[in-house]
Computed example of a mutant assay.
Amino acid sequence: MNPWLEVFGWVGSILVVWSLTQARVLRFRWLNFVGAVIATAYNAIIEIWPFFAMNLAIAVIDAYWLWRLHRTRHDEATYEVVEVQPDDAYLLHVLRTYADDIAGFSPGFVAEAAPGEPRTAFLVQKGDETVGVVEIADQGDGTGVVLLDWVSKRFRDFTPGEFVYRASGVFTGKPFTRLVTAPGQHDRRYLERVGFRAEGGQWVRELAPAASAS
């Protein structure tokens, strides 16, 4: 057998196996799809038809789910933003469960608000699954500080937190006229996507235009 053809087949197998180690839904589907396509071509070349058919079926299934995932990625009907009290028992359970992961997003974040600290908290839901949490502290003068904008690892490629800022209208009736990021939040691509701009070493998003548009 041509050694390069054998390497080609091994690449497909490695990608399929590697995909199974991925926690992120989108990354899993892409790796699995590419691996299955390679395996399909490889098995067609060496004429092993049962494995050709199996990998072709896997590739088709992955293609369907990739289409569906990308189609609903920014779909307001897919995700729901639910406001909860900062001391809500379920919210604190989520924050404790994912404390280590959350520390990577916002190193200085403290789950329980200090006495008298005004906070606003939102859960981002996909069906009955909590996929994100956003917490904002009232700094006064209409400024809200984004203390936490966290997304679970499975949905990290989808940035569902965008619905808190863009599509949910959850700031209607709130005292905030602008949002600023807390120290340590520097994901430029995400922040720009949801309407923040760099200003004086932090990221700022005005809320007045959004309120009037809604």
Results as ranks from 00 to 15, higher is better:
V84C: 00
Q85V: 03
Q85A: 12
P86L: 11
D87P: 07
D88C: 05
A89K: 13
A89V: 12
Y90L: 14
Y90R: 15
Y90E: 14
L91E: 05
L92D: 11
V94P: 01
L95C: 11
L95N: 07
R96Y: 11
T97S: 14
T97D: 13
T97G: 09
Y98A: 05
Y98L: 01
Y98M: 00
A99Y: 04
A99W: 03
A99R: 15
D100C: 00
I102K: 04
I102D: 02
I102M: 00
A103N: 06
A103E: 13
S106H: 06
S106G: 03
P107A: 10
P107I: 10
G108F: 01
G108C: 02
F109L: 11
F109C: 09
V110T: 13
A111M: 03
A111S: 10
E112T: 11
E112L: 11
A114G: 06
A114L: 12
A114K: 13
A114H: 09
P115W: 08
P115R: 05
G116P: 09
G116F: 06
E117H: 09
E117D: 08
P118F: 09
P118R: 05
R119P: 08
R119V: 04
T120R: 12
A121T: 07
F122L: 08
V124C: 08
Q125F: 09
Q125Y: 05
Q125G: 01
K126I: 10
K126Y: 12
G127S: 03
G127L: 05
E129D: 15
E129I: 15
T130H: 12
T130R: 14
V131I: 15
G132D: 06
G132Y: 07
V134T: 13
V134G: 03
V134F: 01
V134M: 10
A137H: 12
A137D: 09
D138A: 15
D138C: 12
Q139W: 09
Q139A: 15
G140Q: 07
G140W: 13
G142T: 11
T143G: 03
T143Q: 11
T143K: 10
G144K: 03
V146D: 00
L147I: 03
L148I: 05
W150Q: 02
W150E: 01
W150V: 02
V151E: 02
V151Q: 13
S152R: 14
K153F: 15
K153D: 15
F155W: 14
F155P: 00
R156T: 08
R156L: 07
R156V: 01
F158Q: 02
F158D: 06
T159W: 04
T159G: 03
P160G: 12
P160I: 05
E162S: 11
E162N: 07
F163H: 14
F163P: 00
V164H: 05
V164R: 09
Y165E: 08
Y165V: 01
Y165P: 00
R166F: 01
A167F: 02
A167I: 00
S168C: 08
S168V: 04
S168N: 10
S168K: 10
G169E: 07
G169M: 09
V170P: 06
V170S: 04
V170I: 13
V170D: 06
F171T: 06
F171Q: 06
G173Y: 04
G173S: 01
G173M: 04
G173D: 11
K174N: 05
K174Y: 02
K174I: 05
P175I: 08
P175S: 11
